[in-house]
Design a binder for these strands. Sequence first.
RNA 1: GCCGAAGUGGCGGAAUGGCAGACGCAGGGGACUUAAAAUCCCCCGGCUAACACCGUACGGGUUCGAGUCCCGUCUUCGGCACCA
Length: 806
Amino acid sequence: MREIPIYDPAKIEKKWQKIWAENKAFAATTDYTKPKYYTLIEFPYPSGQGLHVGHPRPYTALDIVARKKRMQGYNVLHPIGWDAFGLPTENYAIKNHVHPAEVTKQNIKHFRDQLQMLGFSFDYDREVDTTDPRYYKWTQWIFLQMFKRGLAYKREMPVNWCTGCKCVLANEEVVDGVCERCGSPVVHKQQSQWMLKITAYAQKLLDGLDDVDFIDRVKTSQRNWIGRSEGAELDFVLEGTDDKLRVFTTRADTLFGATYMVLSPEHPYIEKYKDRIENYDELMEYRAAAQRKSDFERTEINKDKTGVEIKGLRAINPMTGTSIPIWISDYVLMTYGTGAIMAVPAHDERDWDFAKKFNLPIIEVVAGGRNVQEECYTDVATGILVNSGFLNGMNVADAKKAAIDYAQEHGFGERKINYKLRDWVFARQRYWGEPIPIVHCPKCGMVALDEKDLPLLLPEVKNYEPTETGESPLSKITEWVNCKCPQCGGDAKRETDTMPQWAGSSWYFLRYCDPNNDEALASPEALKYWMPVDWYNGGMEHTTLHLLYSRFWNQFLYDIGVCPVSEPYRKRTSHGMVLGTDGQKMSKSRGNVINPDEMVDLLGADAFRMYEMFMGAFDQAIPWSTTGAKGCRKFIERVWRLQEILNDDEGISEDMKASVHTTIKKVSEDFDGMKFNTAIAQMMTLVNELVKKGSVTRGEYRTLLLLLDPVAPHVCEELWELCGFGAPVYTQKWPEYDEAAMVKNEVEIAIQINGKIRGRIMVPADLTREQADTLRDHPDVIKAVGDKQIVKFIFVPGRLLNIVVK
RNA sequence: GCCGAAGUGGCGGAAUGGCAGACGCAGGGGACUUAAAAUCCCCCGGCUAACACCGUACGGGUUCGAGUCCCGUCUUCGGCACCA
């Protein structure tokens, strides 16, 4: 047995990190003739706490993919950057009286050091930082392009106002009626807001999903969020006027059963017909009460319906000519459809509840259910129309079509598609964000800054706290706010809102392609070569918003000819969370947070990386186990000690051929299929075999190190060097497997009688179904069958023999 | 309520419809050692002396054969919540 050095991860990890950095081992080249591969992880928010053990899981996974693709000859772009604008940094700055830019600088350094400690093969020459003016210049530029095309606009609207952050939140940031970030109550407030017209892209965002390789649940959640629904808009004449009340419905077939209507409490007709309405005050009271509730309360209390009838205003059902009452209720939302509905209590749960409570008539128009007076009937698949004039006898689908056609012919309606998706509130009254490059001119109105004046820099301020009025701290810097109008040259004022954190992350993948370009967000050549991202991995929590927003920006940039592809990501996967040892989400308050620095001290970066991958299925949440992680350290030491039994044979020994090639195949396929845990298990199996055998050839060791390198790169490089295998592993080629070498001569198969195992026999590996008939004479088979009569003889090559007897 | 994912040993988890529990952790036994650590070998779902039998949330079904497919039920987790 040979004398070997001691495995000292602290030493060899530093050594190789230095060598990689000095040689720019992982820099993507600008040789656009080579095949490319673009791997992307969601760039982190550099928080003050540093990395937690959740970060390295997706990073290691795509690092494995990137390292393997490089070895397979691809020009790989595997970049990293910082999504550094945002509230926690700003709050820290307020509390500690430091400039957020200073805090950001420190946090980024901390994060970068930690990532380097783990040996990720990022191309650090392409780092981007969303708070860098050279970066946000282009974030502002994209905003201006949207503004010029009417996709960025300002509108007076009720906004979610966080009483803690003193700032407007997107609907998506309000969770259970409180601020997602700080937990303070959220109230409604009227304010003029910057909006991005993402709704203009609803259908494109939906269609684009057909051509990309996202896991199904991601596609589903995108589709649900966009929420396309096909129906019709129909007009109901207001009795005694020439005016019409427009509703949206997906159930035009049930029009004969519409026995009343419901308006949102904010519906403009209440003002318009104020003089005709007898109980206006009562309605106002109801509206005020509804507005005091947050959206959450309005929609959460769904057990008990409330509402008030509008006295003095009625509508005519266009099918039946009947006069029907009109109510207001907060279950009808002004923000969806037309803010008014026709109520068909017999066939809609909500309408049914409402009708029951207020004693409104329920008329069955779709037969097939039980008594609609007692139970609502909503089955559209089997119902047949009744009490509906010319629609009688039709199924629901045909009746829908016929009803809408009729409405169209008679001029009271048309087909209409609605989306739940709403426009994106795109402004924060905060300091630490991209300034919106717009000037308010008393003469010219809202004017875009000249593109040559970008970036519009964030000015220095003394105090980062938002003002009590809810305006951004920028509004207090008069020398910055007061400016000249770019159009007329007169006195004007700058917009003082900043962009939300989502802005910088909506296009960063484009910047990585050409991060130092001052003439464009990236050169057309670079974008054409690198885009789309081949594999994007991120958290499940970003599969709705970030994914939708960034796809929207990319599609917009495609439409204006900046980006060469309409869909930015070819493949999107999501990783599972790393939970605390107690199976709960890690959090400071639970005290179950695992610190990666300590783990690397204890295990070394290679074992740490390996455990992150070995702990379980990549897309599932798994609790951390430090003792489990030690198992990976043990495995690496086992690989290290293979040196002791290394012989001089450069080839692969005959008896190991099948195992080695099976391992190459399994590891190659499993890395591509995100099954990192089983790839590692296979390598463990191979090592166990080698240890058992007591000797390993240089050829076998080489192959093992090449396969293991993406997971545990430092130790593999070190062993490679110790064995004198030549140029570093990162310059080597990925091994290929030989299907023929994997075939064994003989295999053990199971003998089953009526599906129960009764023995095992060795048979030639290539035994076919036809040849298997000879097994009837095999002594073990004869014994197993006994004196029973054979009914059926089933042979599965290489697997088993099942004999059905009676 | 709706959408999605998932229920397999003490634990993390493996299994193109074909020998359930690969691989690892924890545990037990042994070797080596003055001793310990490390390492190596053996055992490790239940019930059994053994054979047998029973075992993949529960109840049915399809099949020569089901953890895997179908129907129904329950539970857990994640997301959305009156979207007409």
